[in-house]
């Protein structure tokens, strides 16, 4: 039985050397991320072609519903003054969801690589910190670390660093666990079907046992949870946390 669970493969090395990070390598994650970007961009272009003010098509109705939902989500959770966050949060949600669901067509989803989520989480962390500094001023931001007593400063710093790490690991862990469990299930079902069909005597059994017949259909049941529910839920939670943390930072 062969089980192949690896990290994202390095497709090819480029000769470019970056200052701190070392050699630039094109990984599977990056290539599939480009595909995700293409899909999201294509969907946006397709949904917003020939918009009309009356007699709208079904396509336009869907597009309007999505924009409406994004507006309601951000404005409802953050307040009217944060309306300019709508495109950011919607982009984050769309990228995250398409990345999670692209695993369904057999590609390795980019979100099963910690680098992707870490990049998102660091972006969000920068936004949170900027919002905190904007609200309290730099002095107030630094002073916030010494509350309630100066002795707790290390813990406050730790708590601050834990925010992006927690966000990234939560998303990453959920998607990766789905990937690992699906891979194990496929391998186990292949073994089971070859053992089952191997019971048929003669050449027919020998041929049939090479076909993993149990792999058809059964993994779909687990996929409903690990790909659909988990994928959509994690995208939602990531955006929810982004919105909550930034709104909290603005309250001071």
């Amino acid at each position: 039985m062969e089980v192949d669970i690896t990290g994202a493969r390095i497709l090819f090395d480029t000769p470019i050397n970056l200052p701190i990070l070392g050699q630039l390598r094109i990984t599977e994650t990056m290539v599939i991320s480009w595909l995700v970007m293409l899909v999201v961009t294509g969907l946006c272009i397709w949904l917003t072609r020939n918009l009309k003010t009356e007699n709208i098509s079904k396509r336009q109705a869907v597009a309007e519903m999505l924009v409406e939902m994004a507006n309601k989500f951000v404005v409802g959770n953050m307040g009217e003054k944060f309306r300019y966050f709508v495109p950011f949060v919607a982009a984050l949600f769309a990228t995250s969801m398409v990345s999670n669901l692209i695993g369904l067509v057999g590609l390795r989803s980019p979100t099963a690589d910690l680098s992707t989520e870490m990049a998102w989480a660091i972006t969000v962390f920068v936004l949170i910190t900027a919002q905190k500094i904007k609200t309290n001023g730099l002095g107030g931001y630094l002073k916030d670390f010494t509350t309630p007593i100066p002795l707790l400063t290390p813990f406050n710093i730790l708590g601050e660093v834990a925010t992006p790490i927690g966000m990234a690991f939560r998303h990453f862990g959920n998607i990766l666990s789905g990937l690992v469990i699906n891979t194990l299930l496929y391998a186990a079902l292949a073994v089971a079907s070859s053992a089952l069909l191997g019971l048929i005597p003669g050449a027919v059994g020998a041929v049939l046992s090479q076909i993993p017949i149990l792999d058809v259909g059964i993994p779909a049941i687990l996929s409903v949870y690990f790909d659909w529910v988990s994928g959509v839920l994690q995208a939602y939670i990531f955006c929810m946390l982004t919105v909550m943390f930034i709104a909290n930072a603005a309250e001071g």
């Binding site: 927690g166 690991f169 939560r170 862990g173 959920n174 666990s177 839920l233 994690q234 939670i237």
Partner: peptide, 11 residues
Amino acid sequence: ALAETTGIYGF
């Protein structure tokens, strides 16, 4: 989903 975080860390 938030409570799940520590479990995910273990995983």
